[in-house]
Design a protein around this nucleic acid. Structure first.
Lengths: 202, 202
DNA sequence: TTACCCATGTAACCCGTTACATGATTTT
DNA sequence: AAAATCATGTAACGGGTTACATGGGTAA
């Protein structure tokens, strides 16, 4: 589980409550990671049991007490240990690829609709990175963090954008190939293959 | 869960046992999806309860009976329904990006080592796609499947390769930027920031 | 004789999401 | 008056991995 370490990482910036961590999360790493409060609270508890964070309770009335978590020295050690530990490469796990893989048995028009939609969605994601998130990185530099922090933040942003650009380009190429294949084979050939895919092969 | 539908998809090719499905899985979609036998067996059971597959038991002695699963008409319907259903875009969820995000507090040399390793691993993955998998797609076309199937298979392969190329390029760019930043700031500045990251900011 | 292939499964555990529960304060 | 913010959590469920259990046949 990387959530533990993501939380430790955020707590190296400053002590925070679970609620604040969630907000920080959403406003900083949301383009490549996210977490729900229902997962954050138990994880903080586990972190405390491990001795990697300390808890300071601020009593409130009318609402639940604020529990402010602060990273301990051993928490910092653990975090740095984890960061330097080799990380196996993230593998793709994309349900859309399953659909494409079996796309030969589906009307081409439907596949084109699906791909167009993927392209649009990734386009939106890319636009969001290029505007909102890019501005956020710029803004944050002038407040609490060094240019050095901004460098690393923007590297993660670049990766998110590179991924989406690659996806979009792939969609474009795929759609072009599919349209060409329709011209070559005729538009409705797939219908014959729907029931007995193998018999039509030879 | 897409595993149900991935299995249904494979069963549109021909009836198979769980064991054979696993092998087919490993040899066809392993570059963007995978599944363990311990997950496949219960899923087949669920598929059968849904009426999407039929089971034919081939009694054997000395080893467990072969249970050959065949997709039913309603299974085919369900599969086609699922394929055409809109698919939300797969989001990145990459633990390595967390490490990069917090990379400002780690010695640059360590970050460079980590990135080099990611680059190598993704390079290996890319090489595997370009040789083994590409050959497999070519080979399979001549046996059981149409050129049309080969087209869709190779699209998924292209996506896997595009992803890895994008990752590798990002690693190269990041390493370049990090090396430049060392020259500008001096190699060991980070050490001062390790304990009190915020105090050094202003 | 060591290891891999065949062939099935169960149980425990890990990580994550969604739904449920509470309820005052502030903004629209 | 409705909705969002603050602030904590629990419970149920979904999906996936690892470990455990069995055990004959075959290839290196």
């Amino acid at each position: 589980m990387s959530l533990r370490h993501a939380l430790l990482g955020l707590l190296t910036y400053e002590p925070m409550t679970g609620y604040e961590l969630k907000q920080f999360f959403d406003s900083s790493v949301q383009h490549f990671w996210n977490a729900e409060l229902s997962q954050i609270y138990p994880t903080l508890k586990a972190l405390e049991e491990q001795g990697w964070v300390d808890k300071d309770v601020q009593v409130q009335d009318g609402r639940p007490n604020r529990k402010i978590y602060e990273i301990t020295p051993s928490g910092r050690d653990e975090f740095l240990r984890w960061v330097r530990e080799p990380q196996p490469p993230a593998e793709m796990r994309d349900p859309f690829m399953i659909k494409v893989f079996f796309g030969a048995d589906v009307p081409v028009e439907d596949m084109l609709v699906l791909m167009r939609r993927q392209m649009d969605e990734h386009g939106k994601g890319l636009a969001f990175c290029e505007t909102v998130l890019r501005e956020k990185v710029k803004a944050v530099t002038h407040h609490m963090f060094t240019p050095r922090h901004a460098l690393f933040w923007s590297l993660t942003l670049e990766m998110a954008m590179a991924y989406r650009r690659a996806y979009i380009e792939w969609c474009e190429m795929s759609m072009r190939l599919l349209e060409e294949s329709v011209l070559e084979e005729g538009p409705s050939e797939h219908i014959h293959r729907l029931d007995h895919p193998k018999r039509d092969a030879g």
